[in-house]
Design a protein around this nucleic acid. Structure first.
Lengths: 336, 336
DNA sequence: ATAAATTATATTCACGTGAACATTATGGTG
DNA sequence: CACCATAATGTTCACGTGAATATAATTTAT
């Protein structure tokens, strides 16, 4: 029914040139008020809306922000993704679209990066993303990498200092009297898993606590994987007094396994999570965890990206490794 | 550094016309194999990638699918959104981008719909979306509405039959011997809340059970709102033996409130949720719930959208109201 | 009243791509 | 070798918008 209304359609009706229409709709001071009004009325009446592809072509910007995740299917917890998108949407100037994609998807389809964006926000989990980050950087368009510390200094980069967060966590557990500590680690290829594992091991070593390999298990950040990992540990004979679990989702799975095996939390086994997901304050018992500064990371990211897109120099520093904070709740018991 | 490589850049180097380059890169049979190879080599060497805006302009398609949510901030539970996006991404042909947006965002910025997409998937929660659905429909482009039954028959529409799902739920609760039933309803303006509430009330009435208004509370689908609603009910004196909670997130909050007030589940109060979210199989106790057929809805939606975009007639029917199913776990006790 | 200055509008071009149409090679046939 | 069919490539145009440049209309100054 709408045989696509363009500025030329309007021009014909208003008996002016298409340029005048273009100007009128862009509120240029070069057009008489009366003409402007006429043109706008016609535009409204015909339900005109500009062809953004044409606009993008001629203006060299598309009003699209690309948001790349490492993987949309696994490893990225729903509440993390949802909070990210929500924040991004919230802070993005009106008129911008968010294009969501994943490197895993590109890799699978053997595709290269789509260049139709004014700036890209990369929510990176793994060093394997570097290949694509490099492709993005080569476009010369603004790129901000979030969530994982990268090894280059030409891009803006905001991440959570997972190592220090974990050190905080473990030192708290030690202060609470725990010496028999286990860990459920996340996806091995994810930088966050590696840092959290390293923080755990280093802190034990620093305090001269020998680790028990039976209490070290690996999941993939999913709830079920936490359950499975904990089952393995529970079946291994001697038990830890406390588990550090690399994210809250897995912690929920692990706590469920304890429940099923008849171990009470935190009386028999204490639990420390990571992330401070939306559910950790409601599970039973409430999960003591490390709050990942998702909001800060995201806010910095978009603020910077916005500045870069508008050719301003960003207010924030080039790279930040934001320290997570301890959230004490009910899942860790003080022992002696 | 890249002063934008276009097909004309390549044409000059290869000493051919830009059309030949265009043909070669699109693997047209009109170009000699040898020439093709030369051109492709140059393209690769220069790291050429096509300007999708120009392509979209001339081909009248953008390879973008719009995904509209009612609201990205509240009401849409993270696991639902995440599962949707994951499914969509999974089934979308390679090369397509997903543009995520929300009607709430448009309304807030007083913006109209961006038309740069080949088809739109609307994840609708509320009749107030109809305004925008109408705008989308008027573009003449393929639009599929998911999640909520709409009142028009010119669009494809797949939803979960929440009313029948709730009837199933309540009849199960009655069979388990419960007569003192409460409900925590969701966002009042959401169709799903309305249907679930109606299913609840109608089924009680059908079985001649008078409802107790003290046991009817309303939340906003967030965990915390479930907690608050349950608190109110627990403080109201006489207690129900069983709560039907309009989604799993609120159910988790509500169960947490019971725990805090010293009521045991399901011994003193039973719980039935709705959605079958990723966490409902891991909370304590495991939540008996109604599985919302998210995957079926989404799959049908994209399959249909793909067909419509390619001008094929979709295999599936125009509208489907898919019946949810009961998932019995541990949170409902049989009483006599 | 007329030139000059200003304001308003029109014409032409560019953006990068692909399609229609036009032209030039190439190869086969008598 | 001339002719014609066909293969290969080139030229021009269109897509919808906005910017640069040109022209027309109006106002101002003398």
């Amino acid at each position: 029914m709408n045989d696509k209304v363009t500025i030329k359609t309007i021009a014909k009706i208003a008996n002016v040139s298409h340029t005048t229409v273009s100007r009128a709709l862009n509120d240029s001071p070069l057009v008489k008020e009366k003409t402007k009004k006429e043109i706008r009325d016609i535009a409204e009446r015909l339900n005109y809306s500009p062809n953004l592809n044409a606009k993008a072509l001629v203006e060299h910007r598309s009003f699209i922000i690309a948001v790349y995740f490492t993987d949309l299917n696994s490893g990225t917890s729903p509440s993390f993704m949802s909070e990210m998108l929500h924040q991004i949407k919230e802070m993005l100037p009106a008129g911008y679209e968010i294009a969501v994609d994943s490197f895993a998807g590109l890799r699978q389809a053997n595709q290269s990066i789509n260049l139709r964006f004014d700036g890209a926000l990369v929510v990176s989990q793994s060093v394997s993303d570097d290949l694509y980050i490099d492709q993005l950087a080569k476009t010369g368009k603004p790129v901000v990498v979030l969530n994982r510390k990268i090894d280059r200094d030409d891009l803006f980069n905001y991440a959570s200092d997972d190592y220090s967060g974990t050190v905080t966590a473990i030192e708290y557990l030690l202060r609470m009297g725990h010496r028999k500590l286990g860990i459920i680690s996340g996806k091995e290829e994810f930088t966050s898993s590696q840092n959290r594992l390293a923080g755990f091991l280093d802190t034990l070593q620093k305090h001269n606590i020998t680790r028990n390999d039976n209490w070290v298990a690996t999941g993939d950040y999913s709830v079920q994987s936490g359950y499975n990992a904990m089952e393995k540990i529970l079946n291994s004979g001697d038990l830890p007094t406390c588990m550090f679990v690399s994210n809250d989702d897995m912690a929920m799975g692990a706590m469920r396994a304890c429940e099923d095996y008849g171990f009470s939390i935190p009386e028999q086994i204490s639990f420390m999570g990571f992330d401070d997901s939306a559910y950790s304050n409601y599970c039973i018992p409430r999960l003591t965890t490390i709050r990942k500064p998702v909001r800060e990371i995201t806010n910095n990211g978009i603020k910077t990206l916005n500045s870069l897109i508008n050719n301003e120099s960003p207010e924030t520093v080039q790279a930040m490794n934001i320290k997570p904070s301890l959230v004490v709740r009910e899942s860790v018991k003080k022992i002696n």
